[in-house]
């Protein structure tokens, strides 16, 4: 399946019950803001959080962010009204907690379609991010990622996953190693983005660096941030280095030259350039451009 290129380096959670946090979030460097109606909102405040998030997006939508609303769980009594409010707020995506099967995704998608149709939004325009937060979610990651065209990302949730596994959470994260890889493989097979888990200790920036370095090396497209102070560190790992950009440009130039000469196979520095190498190069360039890096004599971010 064709893989898409997009910028989802950091997604910052902001509570739907905190106008102050919502106001501040637009001033940080995160790529995605996740307006939360779930865990950060007390049960007694679900009604007001919906109205806060709806009005925030209707009257003060951040212009340069990918906007996500995390609704309450699939089996929660709050979900139906969350969807009524959230679809009308016209976010880029909805983030669905604790997804464990394709059927769950399809049910949500059908409900979203119904509301999109009522509201007059193009049906299918609101994307879905599925949170994978249990062993069953990990086992079924591929069917979840492939369940519906709306699904553009899977995001790993470590706390609930380790609880479901009876595992202990550690900073090194070996207990998450299999889940991270399983989720990544599913995302790559389905052609959707893979978003890594939260690093919970907001005071440990060195630990965060090690954790996000691992995530980047494994292949993740981004990471969820739990605090604004984590954003720049995470972004720095998911923004291509000058060396990576130069290599990507050389790869793409070699591919172009191969096409011009009508060559079936192209090599660079003695290695064959196959389709995945070309795709990685395209991703690198797109991420660099989206991060505002000027490439190849450009005088503006393309």
């Amino acid at each position: 399946m064709e893989q898409r290129v997009s910028l989802k380096r950091t997604s910052l959670y902001v509570s739907g019950s905190s106008p102050a946090n919502i106001n501040e979030a637009v001033f940080y460097n995160e790529d995605c803001i996740v307006y939360d109606l779930e865990d950060s909102v007390p049960t007694s405040e679900k009604d007001t959080a919906r109205l806060i998030v709806y009005n925030a997006l209707r009257y003060q939508r951040p212009a340069d962010k990918y906007v996500i609303i995390r609704v309450n769980g699939i089996y929660s009594e709050f979900l139906d009204e969350d969807l009524e409010a959230s679809v009308r707020a016209r976010p880029d995506a909805l983030r669905i907690p604790k997804v464990e099967s394709a059927e769950e995704v399809q049910k949500i998608s059908a409900k979203v379609a119904e509301i999109e149709s009522q509201v007059g939004i193009e049906v299918g325009s609101i994307e879905l991010w599925c949170n994978i937060e249990s062993y069953l979610g990990v086992i079924n990651a591929l069917e979840i990622a492939s369940a519906d065209p709306r699904v553009v990302a899977l995001a790993l949730g470590a706390e609930d996953y380790t609880a479901s596994m009876k595992a202990q959470r550690t900073k090194q994260g070996l207990e998450m190693f299999y889940a991270r890889n399983a989720l990544l493989i599913a995302c790559r097979a389905a052609g959707v983005d893979a978003i890594d888990m939260v690093f919970s200790d907001i005071d440990d920036l060195e630990g965060l660096r090690e954790d996000v370095s691992m995530a980047r090396n494994l292949g993740f497209d981004g990471k969820t941030a739990i605090h604004p102070r984590q954003i720049d560190t995470i972004n720095s790992f998911f923004t291509p280095s000058k060396k990576e950009i130069n290599y990507a440009l050389r790869v793409l130039a070699a591919v172009e030259e191969g096409k011009r000469l009508n060559k079936g196979a192209v090599a660079l520095d003695g290695s064959m350039i196959d389709k995945p190498v070309e795709l990685r190069a395209l991703t690198t360039i797109a991420q660099a451009r989206a991060a505002g890096i000027k490439i190849g004599g450009e005088n503006h971010a393309g």
């Binding site: 106008p19 007001t48 109205l51 806060i52 009005n55 925030a56 209707r58 009257y59 003060q60």
Partner: peptide, 10 residues
């Protein structure tokens, strides 16, 4: 801000 007053009133 205005949208917060609106939401809390609603």
């Amino acid at each position: 801000l205005d949208w917060v007053i609106r939401a809390r009133m609603q």
